[in-house]
Design a binder for these strands. Structure first.
Lengths: 171, 171
DNA sequence: TTTCACCTATCGATCGTTCGATAGATAGGT
DNA sequence: ACCTATCTATCGAACGATCGATAGGTGAAA
C-alpha cells in the first residue's frame, strides 16, 4: 500500500466520519489530497472498495489500540473507553463504523460487512478471557452501544463533554 | 398541513432513517408517493426545509408517545425504552434523529438544530419531575446514549434482538 | 377570477466512472 | 552505454446519470 493510498484513505476516513457513506465524493477526497479524482480511482477502483478499505484499516487500528491499553494494564472496559474517548476527542469526529453503521441498510454489501466486523470484533474482545475479566453477552453489547451512542449524542448536541458524562458509569 | 404533505413526510422519514440526510432525494420521495419531484418542492421548498419538518414532527410524536406511557403508569426510563423499542422494532429502522445526528457536522443548520432539539427534549424529560423519579444529568445522557447506540449496533450487526440485549440493564 | 395542487420540461452542478495520453522508473537484452 | 518493453502514477476530458431547484402551463375548486 503506497503512501499516496494511505493519504487518500486518511481523507476518506475524515469525510466518512463527518458525513457518512453517501456524504463523501471522489472529487472532494481528490481535492483534499491534491490530485485528480481519476487518480483516486487508480488506487481504489470504486467508492465501495475505498470505503471498505478505510473501514478495514480503522477496525484493525482500533483493535490494536485496545490490545495495547490492555497490555498496559487497563481493565477491559476501561481500555475500550479510553480508545473510544481518544478517537472522539482527539479527532473531534464520530466513530467511523458508527457513522457507517447508522446507514447500514443503505450500504454496499462489502462496506456493510466491514462495519459489522468492527462490532463483532468488539463484542468478541469484551466477552473473551477469564471469567472475572470477561463481560456477559448483554454487558458487552450494552458497553459498545453506550460508547457509540455517547459519540452520537455529543455530536448532535454540539458539546463534546457529553461523551464523558454519558460514559461515566461504564468504569 | 395537507394529507399529501403528510404522505411526503412519511416517505422522507423512512428514507432518512435508512440512509441519512445525504442519502435521500426528491426524486426518490416523489416516486414513493407517486407524484412529480417538482410537486414535492411545492409542499417543501428545499431539501433542508423538508428534513427539518420531518425531524420536528418526529420529535413531537416521540415526546407525545413517551408522555402517554408515563401517564399510563410506566416509570420514566421504561417509558423511554418502550417508545424507542417500538420505533425500532415496528418500523425496522434507526431513530430519525440518531440517523441525522450521526452526520450532524455535515447538516444544514436548521436540520442540525432539529436533531439537537430531539435530544435536548429527551434530556429535559428524563431529568424532570420529583427527585425520586428524575435522573441525574449523567444518568439521562447515559440512558439516551445507550438507547441510540443499541439501535445502531443492532442495525450494523443485522440482528434486531441486539437492541433488547443492549438495553436489558436500563430497566 | 383567483388560488391551489399538480404537471412537463429544463437548468446548471455534481455524481461515480471510464478513457487515452503522458511522464518517470525499472528491467533485460544487445 | 543504448534501445526496448513494461509498469506505475498521474492527468485532462468526457460519459451518462442524478442531484436540488426553477419556470411556466393546466385544470379544478373556491
Amino acid at each position: 500500500m503506497s503512501d499516496r493510498a494511505q493519504v487518500i484513505m486518511d481523507a476518506a476516513e475524515r469525510r466518512i466520519r463527518d458525513a457518512g457513506y453517501s456524504g463523501f465524493s471522489f472529487r472532494e477526497i481528490a481535492a483534499d489530497v491534491g490530485v485528480a479524482s481519476s487518480s483516486v480511482h487508480h488506487h481504489f477502483p470504486t467508492k465501495e472498495a475505498l470505503a471498505a478499505a478505510v473501514a478495514r484499516r480503522y477496525t484493525d487500528r482500533f483493535e490494536a489500540a485496545v490490545l495495547q491499553e490492555e497490555e498496559a494494564g487497563a481493565p477491559r472496559v476501561e481500555a475500550w473507553l479510553r480508545v473510544f474517548r481518544r478517537a472522539f476527542l482527539q479527532d473531534g469526529r464520530m466513530c467511523l463504523c458508527g457513522s457507517l453503521g447508522a446507514t447500514s441498510a443503505d450500504l454496499p454489501p462489502t462496506v456493510a460487512a466491514e462495519a459489522r466486523r468492527f462490532f463483532e470484533r468488539g463484542l468478541d474482545n469484551l466477552m473473551a478471557g477469564p471469567l472475572d475479566a470477561a463481560l456477559t453477552a448483554e454487558g458487552a453489547k450494552r458497553t459498545l452501544a453506550t460508547l457509540e451512542g455517547a459519540m452520537l449524542l455529543a455530536r448532535a448536541l454540539g458539546d463534546m463533554s457529553v461523551f464523558d458524562q454519558a460514559t461515566s458509569a461504564l468504569v
